[in-house]
Design a protein around this nucleic acid. Structure first.
Lengths: 346, 346
DNA sequence: TTGAAAGCGCTAACAG
DNA sequence: CTGTTAGCGCTTTCAA
């Protein structure tokens, strides 16, 4: 009669952890009561609940998240996908998401998509059953496909905007405008944008705002690339810029800018005397490279935190805030030593 | 009679994904046969298997990892715990573990332990039921407790050795010896070690080897600290070193070294003319800070990969390789601009 | 080789 | 307020 947990079958997990049935038997109540004591404390008498909890504590019972997830479909896990784990730009984002997850009692799964939309999609599909939602950082997946994936899935975008999908981004337009104004005020008459991946939403936003502002201020603007958004891409990018006799270059991101600085130094060109260099992201290292990098900074940890929050909020009170929201966080230009007056060349 | 998947209960996951029963009904076989077709192909006739697989593909059936995990206890997930996600030292390690997990078809969970043994332990306990094993990177948990945790759990250590527990480390002793020899050959008569967290195994190994080699070579060696192993710790560390009239300092890690370089520059001291500085890890930035940092490099991505592999191997063929193994990977000194001849001070 | 049935640990109607 | 009873989707004996 007693709901004995029949052996004859291996127990899961570290050496026979006690189950809800063990607690029930020991406490002299039904298993469902134990369950309720944990998940629905209001629906159990105070006495019983305390008794059950005490017994559970004595036995060292801990609910199995897997078993809990099976009937409900809720895993209390979210996945964070980033294009390149080793790009310091994502460190802050990862940490922000991680902290938020921790605070909300969720577990974070991290995956590297290697700058590939296909890998990213594969991960989303593979993980769909195991997580409650996704944060896609700097997703490389085309708009329509992102929208498709977000049907029937909880997806929040970081560093990317797609209609009808929740997102958190740093204001690229405003920041890019600041960059051009800064360069213009230093007397530069033209800028060269050294582009990153074609699929980068931030990249195309940057170029868009850069060229628009340049036109407005009467500067010439040219885009070269694409270049890999990593230090290794810097050599080709720098050489291309030198070939165009650029006096000021704006790199897709700081990593590329670092590579550019290195290449220019190798070629004996002085920054900023011969050429000014600007980056995006203000990553680790931007303040101690040579010369320190002028770059567009933004609250990247906040981006991670906010994007994760969107997911948790929707999960924890469904219905409320159903409308997709697009958050735009402010950016600001950090002027350091890599930009200076335009050389009098002509 | 047909094993209809009764509604009246919400289906889990994105809009009613097909289950094993749907496939079974459609294929005219039992659910168990479908299961076998996927997990035990040898125990089903080729004909049936192919038929089942075809039907499954047509229906878009994908096994639910959660449901699969419940009976078996195998989640195909491992957790990686690091003390500080934003320390670039761990980037390579994370990537290595991630890649290995991906290749072995495991999912990686990442958690930040904030340099705290308590947080680390909490994470291990909280995640125990949801993962098949753990990689603890630079664990701050005391030896005895690590051994205790590893009972009944699969744990591999990275950057840390504990008796009876699998581990992968970079050779600290050899590397530290190289550092002292390098410094001695430059004419330094004494070294100051600027220590990191007391709980850091690598840190104590470093100091141990450093001081031993110093004694051997007739150099004085002194240890100051602890300092936080981040750039922010550098100011105090640098000041302490200056107070001791050090000509050569060895920092707990590169992050601390970066902070020291910055502080020394602020104080108007020249590196390496007034003081030589050495770091550990060869992290991102070490080659482009000012001056570029002399540091002990190691195959950190390999550490992550190997530590993860230990787990996967034990999981995938239990019994084999049951004995704990300690891997020691080679390190090598990268000499850059931050070390130079000892100043003739006295 | 295949099917039926039991059950992993937990939650959630449904009675009482 | 609490116990009984079905499952969640899958795996795995046990028979046939």
């Amino acid at each position: 009669m007693a709901v004995q947990s029949t052996p004859g079958r291996r127990r899961r997990s570290p050496i026979g952890a006690p189950t809800i049935h063990d607690v029930a038997r020991e406490a002299g109540v039904a298993a469902s009561t134990v369950s309720r004591a944990f998940t629905n404390p209001g629906r159990v008498s105070t006495r019983t609940r305390e008794h059950v909890l005490a017994v559970a504590a004595r036995l060292g019972y801990r609910p199995d998240p897997l078993a809990r997830a099976l009937p409900s479909g809720r895993t209390y896990t979210v996945a964070l996908l980033v294009p390149d784990i080793t790009n310091p730009h994502f460190f802050g984002l990862i940490r922000g998401a991680e902290r938020q997850a921790d605070a909300a009692n969720y577990t974070l799964i991290l995956a590297d998509t290697e700058e590939s939309a296909a890998v990213e999609t594969r991960h989303v599909e593979r993980l769909s059953r195991s997580v409650d939602g996704f944060v896609l950082a700097s997703s490389r997946i085309p708009d329509a496909q992102v929208r498709a994936l977000s049907k029937g899935r909880l997806i929040a975008l970081a560093n990317r905007e797609v209609r009808d999908v929740d997102s958190v981004v740093i204001n690229q337009a405003h920041g890019s405008r600041q960059i051009v104004e800064h360069l213009a005020s230093l007397g530069h008459r033209s800028i060269v944008f050294l582009a990153g991946p074609r699929a980068s939403w931030a990249g195309s936003r940057r170029w868009h705002a850069l060229s628009a502002t340049a036109k407005q201020l009467g500067l010439a603007a040219e885009r070269l690339g694409p270049f890999p958004p990593a230090m290794a891409g810097g050599a080709a990018a720098a050489d291309a810029a030198v070939g165009r006799h650029a006096t000021a270059v704006v790199a897709h991101n700081d990593l590329l800018a670092f590579g550019i600085l290195r290449r220019l130094a190798q070629r004996g060109l002085k920054v900023p005397d011969d050429m000014s260099v600007v980056g995006y992201d203000d990553v680790f290292g931007a303040d101690f490279c040579t010369p320190p990098l002028t770059t567009l900074a933004g609250p990247i940890e906040e981006v991670g935190r906010a994007a994760a929050s969107v997911i948790f909020r929707k999960l924890d009170r469904p219905g409320v805030d159903a409308e997709p929201r697009q958050f735009v966080l402010p950016s600001h230009l950090v002027v350091r030593g890599s930009t200076g007056p335009a050389p009098r060349r002509f």
